[in-house]
């Protein structure tokens, strides 16, 4: 199995799932709440996810698939796992904010090697793989190096119930970074944040205890685009990952600021 074949499958799955999101984005959606008011799911997430799962299974049913809504489907190939978020940014989707996307990554021994992120509203398709490079639609992309002070950053906070005491520190760091740079945004989609970092819009993204399906593809794309990246598993059981991805000139300062907060 080579990366170009798995990349093609991920592209197909992401775009077809994105088309489903587009078909239904004006619907009156039935929203269910999960862990918090911010953590919601719609029937469209599930439709989109099912489409992806079917495409991935048709390609090779021996690869494990981990998705947000359906959990884990174990395959025979133990070292390979698809991690899928059929809709990262559901709150944005439900509120017609065009900042959400489909995120699909293939992990080999827990490291992402193929990644696709698709925003179906803006039709921005980010994709890449080890040995192939990283692209947005037609073009090869790379990060735009900026100093910490000149950079615009994003944060994806941990879940409400994850570590409430530490969350206060996350919020404080957010404020500190926001006040000493061009800004720090909390956008509602970690996947799109990382895609935008790869493209050169953001100078860095950090997150505490995010779901691996939200960030795996983006971490790879950011890395392939020239970002420095570090990530660490917070909880294998809950598939939580903390990470920092930033352009080289911002890395050192940002790392020092957040390493304790996100537990690097």
């Amino acid at each position: 199995m080579n990366n170009s074949e798995t990349l093609k499958v991920a592209l197909k799955a992401a775009v077809e799932a994105g088309n489903i999101l587009n078909e239904h984005n004006k619907d009156n959606l039935k929203v269910s709440q999960k862990e918090s008011r911010r953590d919601i799911v719609t029937e469209i997430d599930k439709m989109s996810e099912n489409k992806i799962i079917n495409i991935l299974k048709d390609f090779n049913s021996e690869i494990t698939i981990l998705t947000e809504e359906s959990g884990i489907r174990k395959g025979k190939k133990e070292n390979l796992t698809w991690v899928v978020d059929a809709l990262d940014g559901t709150v944005n989707y439900v509120n017609n904010l065009p900042y959400y996307g489909v995120s699909i990554a293939l992990l080999e021994n827990n490291n992402p090697i193929v990644g696709v992120i698709f925003n179906p509203v803006t039709e921005e398709l980010y994709y890449g793989a080890e040995g192939i490079g990283v692209f947005k639609n037609q073009k090869r992309i790379k990060v735009l190096d900026k100093s910490f002070e000149e950079g615009l950053f994003t944060v994806a906070f941990s879940g409400k119930n994850h570590d409430p005491k530490n969350r206060v520190d996350e919020f404080l760091k957010f404020g500190e970074i926001n006040d000493n740079t061009r800004g720090c945004l909390r956008t509602g989609s970690a996947a799109i944040n990382l895609a935008y970092l790869a493209e050169g819009r953001f100078a860095g993204c950090w997150g505490k205890a995010n779901k691996s399906w939200d960030i795996s593809a983006g971490i790879l794309l950011a890395k392939l685009a020239g970002s420095k990246v570090i990530f660490t598993e917070e909880s294998e059981k809950d598939h939580l990952v903390s990470y920092l991805a930033a352009v080289p000139s911002s890395w050192e300062i940002l790392y020092k600021k957040i390493e304790k907060v996100i537990g690097l």
């Binding site: 093609k8 592209l11 775009v15 077809e16 994709y127 192939i132 037609q138 090869r140």
Partner: peptide, 9 residues
């Protein structure tokens, strides 16, 4: 990259 795209989507 045109090849990946035409042969996938």
């Amino acid at each position: 990259n045109i090849t990946y795209l035409i042969n996938s989507i």
